[in-house]
Design a binder for these strands. Structure first.
Lengths: 238, 238
DNA sequence: ATCTTTAACTGGTTAGTACCACATTCTACA
DNA sequence: TGTAGAATGTGGTACTAACCAGTTAAAGAT
């Protein structure tokens, strides 16, 4: 499985930027890059578009293409829609401890979030996420039984979203996330390995599939000193 | 001032989608669109890229291009891009105290976020936001002088984004927001009217205009017990 | 010397063509 | 009557070739 050309250019430029360049340094012009890599300008621009979109570079008409500043700070871990992906991207080794998986009748608030009727059950999955071996995030995930029947711990060796897709052909198109700051209590602070009272991000995530049916509800606690929630907002007002 | 072709295609497609199409409807194929609009495939793909990036459409290799589900639901508030709007929608009376506005040479990290060169100045605006008279959020906003020359306190009777648009014809298309949980120190806790050590959301916002030029950088502190950061995540990963 | 013009950069837009990879349908062979 | 395979449609990648539109610095005129 060989990568497309422009993705190779992306990787290469990204590495060079990371290792050899400083913020606001100028990159070679598009016409120079085209010669260096032996590809067309189209391909170069595809690669640069990607880097620009991800905030790694910025372009100024008539002046050139430059290294952004935001890129370097490693602490930027991004929003949590896929913990493992984001970790890998930022060069950290992500691990997940699946602690418990049980079939429960959820509390009313959780049931509401999942549009469950009285008595309908859901799987409750408790996970601890670590980066480079350090606890970073603790999460309780609820998955409706009617959508994910017969879910097993052994399924969860894979990424959760992979399991959803492959075993159940379910996929989250849209997720709503609410983020709140809380002071950790004794118990939770112990789990995350910090002091009681330390600030923590509490993230509520509600994911729905393409038919607007809720398929996941997760409550997470993330260490305030190590986790940054990142999102991007588009304003298409026109 | 005539728009580029592909932007016309974007507007036109966007209108059609809004007025005539339903979620998951299929758009004409790229090769059909190319004939309809009398432009090259390159141009069509540029337009579709934009719509895809903004979550309005999604593409499936071999199958076609489709209308996303998210676009319809009007609740387009996304996040905190406009404090006042959001508050009104939730039924609270928002007020803003503009405390200070001064022209400063920002620290390096702020300068970097705004892509300012050494010595370039920015307006620093300090604001306190209240809901129903209770302090809720404290924010420092930096605005590049070269983009907003001659900014005055009296301009700020209006909503900041209204001023940007009307006085300077600037508009933020995309904003990156990083959200972190912190424990408040003595000073900040006093401003927000809570106890030192209380958890708070620290929000970094970097907004750029349609030319990818940073036009705003804001650092906010929001009361953890009263403020929830809300966002939505689209996954058309397939 | 100073100002104006021009030339030579930069990224931005557009056209046209070709082929690849995935998905579906139609067709021909067993 | 199936089933393998071809044909056709979709988006994805890639190249070539121009020209447009800002920016900067060199060349020229005053």
């Amino acid at each position: 499985m060989k990568k497309p050309l422009y993705q190779q250019v992306i990787s290469d430029l990204e590495n060079k930027i990371k290792s050899e360049m400083k913020p606001n340094d100028r990159l070679p012009s598009e016409r120079q890059l085209l010669k260096e890599y032996g590809v067309s300008r189209n391909t170069i621009r595809l690669a640069l578009n990607d880097l620009e979109e991800r905030g790694i570079i910025y372009r100024l008409h008539g002046k050139g293409t430059f290294v952004s500043t935001i890129y370097l700070d490693q602490t930027n871990l991004g929003s949590m829609y896929s913990f493992s992906e984001q970790m890998s991207e930022t060069g950290h080794k992500p691990t997940t401890q699946n602690r418990t998986l049980e079939l429960v009748t959820p509390e009313e608030d959780v049931a509401n979030q999942l549009n469950l009727r009285a008595g309908e059950k859901a799987y409750k999955l408790v996970r601890l996420r670590l980066a480079d071996g350090v606890p970073l995030m603790y999460g309780e995930t609820y998955l409706p039984e009617k959508i994910f029947p017969n879910l097993k711990m052994s399924d969860l060796k894979e990424n959760l979203y992979t399991v959803m897709k492959q075993k159940y052909n379910e996929q989250s198109i849209l997720a709503f996330e609410d983020v709140q700051a809380v002071n950790l209590d004794e118990k939770d602070s112990k789990v995350l390995g910090v002091k009681p009272g330390d600030a923590s991000l509490k993230i509520f995530r509600r994911a729905i599939n393409d038919k607007n049916v809720p398929i996941e509800f997760t409550i997470s606690l993330a260490r305030g000193d190590r986790f940054i929630y990142r999102s991007r907002q588009y304003n298409h007002l026109v």
